[in-house]
C-alpha cells in the first residue's frame, strides 16, 4: 500500500511529461461546500482529467490563505469537519474509484494535535500520497518529513519568490513527489496574471532539482495555464475553483468538472 502511494505522483507526472500544458491540481477544502461533498468533488476532478488533487484540512487560523479559502475552511469547521474526517473523505473517494494522486494541505497545529506519527499513518492508510504544510519551513520539518517518508507519503515543501536559490536547494533535498512553488509574495487567492517573479522562481527551482514543479497561489484562468506551458509541470488552482463552487448552484461536482476542463483547454467532451 505505502509503496504504491509513493509512486502515484511519479507515475502521474511521468504520464504528463510531454512538454505540453501543465497538469491541473485542483484544491478543495474538505467539508466545503457541504460535509459530504468532498469525495464526489475529488471524483469529478478525476473525470475532468486532473493530474492530481489537493484536499485542504481546515484550520481555524490559516495564515497562508486569503479570504476565499479562509471562509471555505470556516464554513467547513462550523459544519463539523475534523482532520480525521477529512482524511476519511479521501479513503471514501479511493473506495469509489479515485486513482489520481492526492495531497493533503493543512497547518502544523492540527497535525501536532493528532500526533505526527498518527497523522502520517492515517494519511497512508487513507491513500493520501503527499502532505503540504505551509507553516512548516525546512528548519522545523525534519520530524514530519521522516514520519511521512516512513509511511511512503511524500513531504511536499513550499518555496517562494523570496526564497534564495541556495535555500531552494536545501528545501528540495527534503522533498518528494513535487515542489510546491508559490507564485506570489502573498496569500492564496485568484490574481489577474502570472508574475515574472513566478517564472524566475520556476527557473531557479529547475536549476537545483529535477523534481516536478507545481505552481500555486493566484492561478485562476485557462490563459494562465497556457502561458505556463514549458515553465512548470503542474498548477494548483484553489480559490478560483472554490469561488466557482460557492456561486455556482447545487451541483459542486459538475461545476468542478467544467472548471477543470476549461483550465485544461479541452471541451466538455475532452
Amino acid at each position: 500500500m505505502t509503496a504504491a502511494t509513493a509512486g502515484r505522483f511519479e507515475a502521474a507526472f511521468a504520464a504528463g511529461a510531454a512538454g505540453g500544458r501543465p497538469g491541473i491540481i485542483p484544491y478543495v477544502t474538505a467539508g466545503f461546500p457541504g460535509p459530504d461533498d468532498t469525495a464526489p468533488l475529488l471524483l469529478a476532478c478525476q473525470r475532468a482529467g486532473s493530474l492530481a488533487a489537493e484536499v485542504g484540512i481546515p484550520f481555524s487560523d490559516p495564515l497562508a490563505d486569503g479570504p476565499t479559502i479562509q471562509s471555505a475552511g470556516w464554513r467547513a469547521l462550523e459544519q463539523g469537519m475534523t482532520p480525521a474526517r477529512a482524511i476519511s473523505e479521501v479513503a471514501r473517494a479511493r473506495d469509489a474509484g479515485l486513482t489520481i494522486p492526492v495531497a493533503a494541505m493543512t497547518y502544523i497545529n492540527p497535525v501536532l494535535t493528532m500526533g505526527i506519527e498518527a497523522f502520517a499513518g492515517a494519511c497512508a492508510a487513507a491513500g493520501i500520497d503527499g502532505v503540504i504544510v505551509p507553516d512548516l519551513p525546512v528548519e522545523e520539518a525534519a520530524g514530519l518529513a521522516a514520519s511521512l517518508g516512513a509511511h511512503g507519503v511524500a513531504h511536499i515543501p513550499l518555496v517562494a519568490p523570496t526564497t534564495p536559490t541556495s535555500r531552494v536547494a536545501r528545501v528540495a533535498a527534503t522533498a518528494a513527489g513535487f515542489i510546491y512553488c508559490v507564485s506570489v509574495t502573498g496569500t492564496t487567492g485568484a490574481r489577474e496574471s502570472v508574475s515574472p517573479a513566478a517564472l524566475d522562481l520556476l527557473e531557479r527551482v529547475r536549476s537545483v532539482t529535477a523534481l516536478p514543479r507545481a505552481l500555486g497561489f493566484g492561478i485562476s484562468r485557462p490563459e494562465h495555464v497556457e502561458a505556463l506551458t514549458g515553465h512548470c509541470e503542474a498548477v494548483v488552482v484553489g480559490s478560483a475553483l472554490l469561488d466557482a463552487i460557492a456561486s455556482g448552484g447545487d451541483d459542486p461536482g459538475a461545476i468542478a468538472e467544467r472548471f477543470v476542463r476549461e483550465l485544461r483547454g479541452v471541451g466538455a467532451a475532452g
Partner: peptide
C-alpha cells in the same frame, strides 16, 4: 518559527 516560506528570509 512556524511561518510561511515567504517570511523566512
Amino acid at each position: 518559527a512556524f511561518v510561511p516560506e515567504t517570511l523566512v528570509p
